[in-house]
Design a protein around this nucleic acid. Structure first.
Lengths: 223, 223
DNA sequence: ACCTGAACACCGTTCAAGT
DNA sequence: ACCTGAACACCGTTCAAGT
């Protein structure tokens, strides 16, 4: 597992930065359920308890990991019109969340937003206010967009098994389970059988469709 | 904790039903992170290992719990026009998810959908097809709505601390942390300070706003 | 300042066994 | 058919101690 440090070589000294970045990498590779303080320390070539010098506990470790994810999201560029700017940050969010699938359910929930999360929030609110939305409408517009973006990411993450093998296994098993009652679910058969199962199902296009539906709807509500 | 069974009284016999329903109640009360096989068995007055006769493992326990949640969601009523029917099921979903906050992140992800989840899916697809949407548009329309509904529930669950004390603590702490740099976040100050912090912030209204934005947008795209 | 091992109170699950 | 305790391989975290 990992690469065990040769005892002769001195290990890179720990730091909050290094601990967090390694934790993110580990979660990217193996998912967050399998991320333990002990394995993380191991990956760093350190004793399990060394982590606690740099991070108070696992909860705040995850807070820090989430803020790293926030820092990778491109804020709405100032020079673009509001819809294009929002599309850009939406796409960037989706892309980043696909790189860090473990983070999807955790972005909104942290009670302690980090600096990157705060900065992004500020940039988005500013973009909407400058576009002419009232304070009340800015809140609404922000809320719909984020609900959609994070909800879509949740679907996408959850519905795409990690490996092709997983996918085949799941598909086959569902067939087994429901084959005898398929007649009761004509619409499911029509939709799943006819379209979703096609390999070319394109999440990016689907994401854009819903996003533009929302952005166009909002455009009429500016002051 | 709970009510320890008096040794004289014979305990209700276990069953998959009872195990699942007790697990849901426990998760409702204490969150899903604190739900362990051992505590669940304890609550049932049984030994920890008794559960494994009724449920193969924790993963499938949770699958079963999620399907109970699905079973509580009202499907789109057949006799209503499509938008009203969809609004009904959307509200029902939000309400059920507020009763079972632990479930929000788990509804879409389970690789083994249960019967209730399947039935609900079928009903929604049927409603959209009857409304005149093409197969392709049905998929899109379904996807936008669910992304929004589950994304909104995610925000709402995550942003509402369990207790008023939690809320106060978080608010105060955020103030402490960012007071010195508040000048850098004028839009955040304006929006949070001016509106969101007001006690009367109404999630139901906000939910409806975004939902109708989407439904109206979709209405123009029927065949 | 930075790192550590032993110990504690937990987990999920296997297994061989009891009624 | 239904339930069980002991045991195994894990967890996060406290504490007192090492350099």
């Amino acid at each position: 597992m990992g690469r065990p440090e040769p005892a002769t070589e001195t290990r890179a000294p720990l730091s909050k930065e290094l601990v967090l970045r390694t934790a993110v990498a580990l979660a990217d590779r193996h998912g967050i359920e399998s991320l333990s303080m002990r394995k993380l320390a191991d990956e760093l070539g350190a004793g399990a308890m060394s982590l606690y010098y740099h991070v108070p506990n696992k909860e705040e470790l995850i807070d820090g990991m989430v803020d790293i994810v926030f820092s990778e999201i491109e804020p709405p560029p100032l020079e673009l019109d509001w819809k294009t700017a929002m599309r850009r940050r939406a796409h960037s969010t989706r892309e980043v969340l696909n790189r860090h699938r473990w983070a999807v359910g955790l972005m909104e929930g942290r009670m302690k937003p980090g600096p990157a999360g705060i900065r992004l929030r500020e940039a988005i609110l500013g973009c909407l206010r400058r576009a002419g939305f009232s304070i009340e409408m800015t809140i609404q517009a922000y809320s719909v967009q984020d609900a959609y973006i994070y909800g879509f990411a949740l679907q996408e993450t959850d519905m795409s098994p990690e490996t092709a093998d997983d996918f085949a296994a799941v598909a086959e098993q569902q067939m087994d389970t429901y084959t005898d009652v398929l007649a009761d679910f004509p619409n499911l058969v029509e939709v799943v059988g006819g379209h979703v199962a096609r390999a070319g199902y394109d999440y990016a296009t689907e994401f854009l469709f819903g996003l533009d539906l929302i952005l166009e709807g909002l455009d009429g509500l500016r002051g």
